[in-house]
């Protein structure tokens, strides 16, 4: 029972973490809470389903999945880039509230844009595909983990192989992100820009490029989360970005907004809390979403800088 809740918690937690990274990286550099980021995740999920549906069954799973990820990440990255250029860049020197309100506007715009073009009802792909994907990974994992063909058994917990895929893929992406910001020139420039914008200009960092890169990377990570959730549930809806966005934002604040390691831990902790509370407190599963808000309120009261946040000016 406990193992079950932990694995469920890690699954949603890694999704929160991936989305939270986009909030935190943008905040780190622009001090902007990009409220439209939840919709970026939603777009990633839609693109995955649109891609899979349009391809029908013409590809084996092993070939299909990487393409789904690339397709969704690429186009979502383009959305992130474009949103920054058109909606936020013109407001770079405007009062912060203007950009914040614009972000809310972009969020509403994207929801309605998807609703009008894709319809107001859930978009689903055939169960067959979901099951195929699950079977494909079960088959793979069954070499290491006991399995009954559709589920895996870890410490008494029954889990879907896609949960394991979500957790592992998220970890890989976070390790890659960490390597990127610590070992590449543009990654170091991102950290430098977040730590001291003025000095970044003075050493000749092209700050506009860094900001674009930040939006693209944040969007790519959000898209990856969207793709995985779409595969897991086999359905999306134009409104899924809202709740996921709020949760991920909570995760970012919990970890200390602006700090990428904070976003990773914040996401996992939030996911685990929700899942454990829902599983262990009788009747709580009906209102598990409330825990995110309770956590948000508690941090804002007792530790507004978050777990990893230190003093002002310390970012990532």
């Amino acid at each position: 029972m406990l193992a079950q809740q932990i694995i469920n918690g890690l699954t949603v937690g890694s999704v929160y973490a991936l989305i939270a990274l986009g909030y935190t990286m943008v905040y780190g550099i622009l001090q902007l809470i990009n409220f439209a980021h939840g919709e970026i995740y939603m777009l990633g999920a839609y693109l995955a389903i649109i891609f899979v549906v349009s391809l029908k069954f013409s590809l084996p799973i092993a070939g299909l999945l990487p393409l789904v990820f690339l397709f969704a990440m690429f186009f979502t990255g383009c959305y992130g880039f474009t949103i920054e250029k058109f909606a936020y860049k013109p407001l770079r020197n405007a009062p912060r509230l203007s950009a914040l309100i614009t972000a809310v506007g972009v969020s509403i715009f994207l929801q309605n844009y998807v609703m009008l073009t894709q319809g107001a009802k859930d978009k689903v792909f055939s169960h067959l595909i979901s099951e195929q994907i699950n079977a494909y990974f079960s088959n793979f994992f069954s070499k290491f983990i006991p399995s009954d063909g559709s589920r895996l058994y870890i410490c008494g917990a029954q889990i879907y192989s896609l949960q394991l895929v979500i957790i592992i893929t998220s970890i890989i992406l976070m390790v890659l992100l960490n390597l990127f910001v610590t070992h590449t020139k543009i990654g170091k420039a991102m950290r430098a820009t977040a730590q001291d914008l003025k000095m970044a200009h003075l050493v000749g960092i092209k700050v506009d490029t860094v900001i674009s890169t930040t939006f693209i990377i944040g969007s790519i990570l959000g898209a990856a989360a969207g793709v995985m959730v779409a595969m897991y549930y086999g359905r999306v809806w134009y409104y899924i970005g809202y709740l996921a966005g709020v949760k991920a934002f909570t995760a970012a604040v919990l970890g200390g907004i602006g700090n990428i390691y904070g976003a990773m831990f914040g996401g996992l902790i939030l996911g685990l809390t929700e899942s454990l509370a829902a599983g262990l407190i009788p009747g709580a599963s009906e209102w598990k979403d409330v825990f995110a808000f309770i956590i948000l309120i508690l941090i804002l009261i007792f530790r507004p800088q978050g777990i990893f946040g230190e003093r002002i000016g310390e970012k990532f």
């Binding site: 430098a192 730590q195 000095m199 000016g313 990532f316």
Partner: peptide, 10 residues
């Protein structure tokens, strides 16, 4: 610049 502006966490 005035005030050094070292990148604190680099």
């Amino acid at each position: 610049p005035e005030g050094r502006h070292i990148f604190p966490q680099l």
